[in-house]
Design a protein around this nucleic acid. Structure first.
Ligand SMILES: [Mn+2]
Ligand SMILES: [Mn+2]
Ligand SMILES: [Mn+2]
Ligand SMILES: [Mn+2]
Lengths: 218, 218
DNA sequence: ATATATATTTAGCCTTGTCTAAATTTAATT
DNA sequence: AATTAAATTTAGACAAGGCTAAATATATAT
């Protein structure tokens, strides 16, 4: 059975290295987990010992199959809890993350599978991120960044790349949520800002924003 | 903010010493928490430092008001989660405790208050134990041990004193649950076993059993 | 190819919470 | 009251997980 700390390291590698398939640097993990590189080295060694990561000195780490499965399970729990908080406990999408960071470490097969059923087997969390199934598989839907669209393109908002409180609050203020319909009106060459039509209102959004919104073209 | 371990020590004192009002011995805490007396001494000192317990060498510990409130909050969370697991996630009353032991340490005011509302403000957990309100108060209902009743007394089962898996399984097997109606038919002088009427069936139960069932006389 | 900068690892220390063994205090018996 | 037993505390050690500073390896720039 893994500790909370070990689970967090596996999750970091999972997120930073394409589900753990790509090598992730010590520094990147330290940044993600808000710790020091030296602590990361220690922990990676321990995880390698337990056959959860592949590690070669100075070459970063990837997840083993066992490590990937564990990380996916933690992510699954995180996202299912986020759904529960929003759907049943009146949390807003910018309030769920910290609590889910705690709940994702609760150990009970039955709990998570029953929660999954209770929520009617959701496929995505409140930020549009896919929920791994109990075998760690995610079926990836095709989505792209709003920034990549051209004038006259229409799409639905299906996810956020940055799910920081600040960005989510910005979206709330501008009445942008999952499912919101966008039509690209124009794109400024100078700074790549966009004018888009939302609910019959035109709004100008910066490149930073369009680069952090996932959409599905329709 | 307290650690998981500190919370568990406070809870132990709360449970062993009448909500922490009575002095609890080092050994009793060690037994409850499954640790060694020397570890308890260390932790009690730390909690006294933080003004959560009153401690005098060799005299055991009581909870301060602050400690009592914290302990009650942990117990509140534990019991609310138990209700959730039984009511919404298909857990049986003998399956909830271990998971609640983990969930009780999740830190979020909003989470627990929303959970309380979601469950419609339950007053008792699946074992009949009262749920403290957000101020740590419990309104105690009058209940007594089945063992104290006399022939011809009738009552409803309102709680279990021992909520071990073994006892709960025994009750399941004998179709005894919260709300079950009992009528005492006779009491054996020799071993204090009782014959009671349950669902029009007479059953003989040992003193051990009648001493662990809380009932409300009607 | 060499020098410099950056990334990573190592070494040594710290805190939390635990343990065992020894010392001390309190409780129980003679 | 003196002795023995039991409970409690102290002393010293350890593992987990973290940190800082120093050493080493890799990457970048001259
Ligand atoms: Mn999240
Ligand atoms: Mn999310
Ligand atoms: Mn319980
Ligand atoms: Mn209970």
């Amino acid at each position: 059975m893994l500790t909370l700390s070990e689970e967090n390291y596996l999750k970091a590698i999972y997120h930073l290295g394409k589900f753990g398939s790509q090598s992730v640097s010590t520094n990147a993990i330290a940044e993600q987990i808000q710790t020091k590189a030296s602590s990361v080295t220690d922990m990676i060694k321990k995880l390698a010992e337990k056959d959860l990561v592949n590690y070669k000195k100075y070459q970063g780490a990837t997840l083993t199959e066992s490590g990937r499965l564990t990380a996916a399970s933690v992510v699954r729990k995180h996202r299912l809890w986020e759904v529960f908080l929003v759907e049943n406990l009146n949390f807003k999408w910018d309030e769920v993350h910290e609590v889910a960071e705690q709940l994702e470490h609760i150990k009970s097969e039955k709990l998570i599978n029953q929660l999954d059923a209770f929520l009617d087997f959701p496929t995505h969390d409140p930020h549009g991120d896919p929920i791994p199934d109990k075998h760690g598989n995610i079926k990836k839907t095709d989505k792209e960044l709003l920034a990549s669209l051209k004038p006259s393109d229409e799409c639905l908002c299906v996810g956020v790349k940055d799910s920081s409180k600040e960005f989510l609050n910005y979206l709330d203020k501008n009445e942008i949520a999952l499912g919101t319909h966008f039509k690209v009106m124009s794109k400024e060459d100078f700074d790549e800002s966009m004018t888009i039509l939302i609910n019959n209102e035109t709004k100008s959004i910066s490149k930073t924003v369009s680069n952090n919104l996932f959409v599905k073209v329709i």
